[in-house]
Computed example of a mutant assay.
Amino acid sequence: MTDSIDLNNLPNPDNILTYQEFVSDVHINKINVKRLLLEAVIAPIDVSKYLSKDHQINIVLTHEFKDYIVNDTNTFTASGLVKVRAKINKDTIFIIEVELIAEYDTTQIEKEITNNVYEAFIENNVPVNLWPYAREAIQSGSTKMGYPPLTIKPYRLII
């Protein structure tokens, strides 16, 4: 025996929001720093001792944009974490981590927002929204620790 589906309780496709509709109707309320870590492992004055013709500073950059929380107030928040580690060979010079939170307003959206739409937005739009703030935090953070300003490239969405 197979389970029957109640056709009366299926979602109305006209009431389901598309990703394109969502993107055009959602608005950023605010973007805040949740956490900022600046750690000078090797003092800037001592970095020259590690440098030679054969050694250069390598930058290891990682990022993660995946979490979101839907709130009761027609808003949702999304977060992103960007980490930078500057190294010479195996020696870490400095570490910068910035975690950002964006709050988005969905009051203009009347249709149902599915998890697929939220997940597509987190993957495609949140990095573009948060990346400039992460870039600024990394550049100013490196100078505040006494190192030259570290400028990371703009975020590019590969389609």
Rank of each mutant, 00 (worst) to 15 (best):
A40C: 14
E112S: 10
L100G: 05
V117E: 03
P148G: 09
S24N: 15
N8L: 15
R135M: 08
K144T: 09
P127M: 11
D6C: 07
P11V: 14
I109G: 07
E119M: 12
D14T: 14
P132F: 01
I5F: 15
V33Y: 08
V60Y: 13
K34G: 09
F76N: 09
V84C: 05
Y133N: 05
K83N: 13
I138P: 02
K87L: 15
T75A: 07
D91W: 10
S140G: 04
T18C: 12
K34I: 14
N129P: 11
S4V: 15
Y104I: 05
T114W: 11
F65T: 07
L100Y: 09
N124V: 07
T75F: 05
K87R: 14
N71R: 06
H63A: 00
S52W: 12
D14S: 12
E123D: 04
I138Y: 00
Y147M: 08
P127N: 11
V23Q: 10
T114C: 09
V26S: 10
E136A: 03
K66G: 04
H27G: 12
I88A: 00
I109A: 04
A102N: 04
Q108V: 05
L36V: 15
V70G: 01
N129V: 13
V33A: 08
V70F: 00
V47N: 04
L17G: 03
S4E: 14
D72E: 12
